[in-house]
Design a protein around this nucleic acid. Structure first.
Length: 504
RNA sequence: UCCUCAAUAGCUCAGCUGGUUAGAGCGAGUGACUGUUAAUCACUAGGUCCCUGGUUCGAGCCCAGGUUGGGGAGCCA
């Protein structure tokens, strides 16, 4: 019997097993918020309706105590799930004291140290369920489309895209690296099965501490024989929209719980704009408007708005502080104001960060040098003009991986495509059409100073039945982060591995 | 690797220009209250002010170096 099924048992006697998520006392009454993994519901122990021993035990339950109880399911519209349970008997499996995560805001470092317990909280519960839905939807889509799931090795002897950022390990005395992409193996598998996708862990030893990076993350890499870049983009679009739709259809409760405004997810079901690198650069530099909106001018307006908000928030904080300092305020009211001030102060910190960032974005957008890759701020500058993910393709070949095909009509460009998520989330997909010409590949491998011998097997694919083919890589955690509108990727995976974080 | 911000009670933070015994809220403990939703109210306990050195009559506060963490750049999904 699980809490999610209570609605089917109205008026009936049920047995629930779970953990105490919260407890409140009153004379003769104990309210327990019980959590069982499927949901949360309030259970009431009434001194007049249960044994004295059970009632005393109920009053002593600390947070996260484990219990089993029998009770009657009653409809109660005041409750989150719409039902509450009137306890008739209670069995304590374990009493718990001093559970470290309090019913209060905590800092990131503390929560990360307690990740194994943090996962029990409502918000993390909802995020992990959405992650699960996304993973299932990914498999569903590709299986439905006739793709074969095949995984690439995790140990590799050579670097796919350069030798930096690799974790080195010992492989029977030889150096081996943890995979940073299954891409090249995916191409080999696509030549055997037509359409394949990999779904596995990926490792990047980047010493970066940003909200977008993990050292270990999960990547989905489809590869399709006989696809060109345009068919690739068609597939990316229908794939992402399938996943978004699945989440909207089956995770309403979770999205509400994490307070995700789904407007952008809804609007992402329309066509994704496809921009060439040239068009994207013109938009970023403010030389080309999007629906009458200019990137630079809208940033300047945003900055003015942020500054006005900072002013408003600052004066509200001062006002409330003055009120508290004045004599005669009741304790409850003081608490209320202090909480309010704490919230306002953290808002203020974020606003001030924006105030510092926006001028830098404007500068870097104005001074963007044609031919460079887009930086994090450039991605923010362009994506905030759209309410849907955008696809940027045909990149200067110098900034992209060696295996991307040159545009046959303009050799300056490689047929890569990046998908940039809206709301400032940036790149969630990178892919493209692959180079089929053996000599072009050899030149590129030399140019990137990669060891040719390690790539002979890969070049075999160009010698024996080379055909046009394309594919892409999706970072699962970045997709989860965007869809849940999280502040940081670390909340999108159960146990994040990142620079400076190996435990728990 | 670089830039930037921070570290004070179990947690989140305040601590004025360097000045006597370092504060609040939450959490914990005890008690009160028969419908609470982060319940409320009263009382109690709880401190190596990150570390090392320096300046000073005096350092939580100033200076130098380090450690750890946050945000960002580079690079990337």
């Amino acid at each position: 019997m699980y809490i999610k099924d209570l609605h089917a048992f109205e008026g009936k006697e049920v047995t629930l097993k779970g953990w105490v998520a919260n407890r409140r006392d009153s004379k003769g009454l104990v309210f327990i918020n019980l959590r069982d993994g499927s949901g949360v519901c309030q259970c009431v122990a009434d001194a007049n309706k249960i044994s004295e021993e059970d009632f005393n035990n109920a009053g002593k339950l600390g947070l996260e105590s484990a219990i089993e109880l029998n009770g009657t399911v009653l409809k109660d519209d005041r409750q989150i799930g719409g039902y509450e349970v009137q306890i008739s008997s209670l069995k304590v499996i374990q009493f718990v004291d001093n559970y470290p995560i309090a019913k209060k805001e905590h800092g990131v470092d503390f929560l990360m140290d307690n990740r194994h317990l943090w996962l029990r909280s409502q918000r993390q519960w909802a995020i992990m369920r959405i992650r699960n839905t996304i993973i299932f939807a990914i498999h569903k889509f590709f299986q439905q489309e006739g793709f074969v799931q095949m995984d690439a090795p995790v140990f590799t002897g050579n670097a796919c895209e350069g030798t930096t950022n690799l974790f080195e390990t010992d492989f029977y005395g030889d150096p081996a690296y943890l995979s940073q992409s299954g891409q090249l193996y995916g191409e080999a598998m696509a030549m055997a099965f037509g359409k394949i996708y990999t779904f596995g862990p990926t490792f990047r030893a980047e010493k970066s501490k940003t909200r977008r990076h993990l050292s270990e993350f999960w990547m989905i890499e489809p590869e399709m024989a006989f696809y060109d870049i345009h068919q690739n983009m068609d597939l990316i679009e229908s794939f992402l929209q399938f996943v978004i739709k699945e989440v909207l259809d089956s995770c309403q409760k979770e999205l509400t719980l994490i307070e995700r405004d789904t407007t952008i997810l809804q609007s992402s079901l329309k066509k994704f704009p496809r921009l060439t690198y040239d068009e994207a650069v013109a938009i970023i530099k403010g030389e080309k408007d999007v629906n009458g909106v200019n990137s630079i001018r809208s940033l300047e307006e945003e900055l003015a708005k942020v500054e006005a908000e900072i002013h408003a928030v600052t004066s509200e904080i001062n006002e409330r502080e003055a009120k508290i300092a004045a004599p005669g305020m009741k304790k409850g009211e003081i608490n209320f104001n202090q909480n309010k001030i704490a919230t306002l102060k953290s808002d203020l910190k974020e606003l001030e960060e924006q105030q510092r960032n926006i001028p830098q974005w404007i500068e870097s957008a104005k001074n963007f040098r044609y031919g460079n890759d887009l930086g994090g701020s450039d991605e923010t500058v362009i994506t905030r003009l759209f309410d849907v993910p955008i696809m940027v393709y045909d990149w200067p070949h110098e900034v992209k991986a060696f295996y991307l095909k040159r545009n046959p009509d303009d050799a300056r460009f490689a047929r890569g495509v990046d998908v940039l998520a809206p709301e400032g989330y940036g790149e969630i997909v990178g892919g493209g059409e692959r180079e089929t010409n053996e000599q072009m590949l050899r030149d590129k491998i030399t140019e990137h100073e990669l060891p040719m011998a390690d790539f002979e097997w890969y070049l075999d694919l160009r010698r024996f039945g080379s055909v046009p083919h394309a594919g892409f890589g999706l970072g699962l955690e970045r997709l989860v982060t965007w869809m849940c509108k999280l502040k940081h990727v670390r909340e999108s995976i159960p146990f994040p591995r990142m620079y400076g974080r190996l435990l728990p």
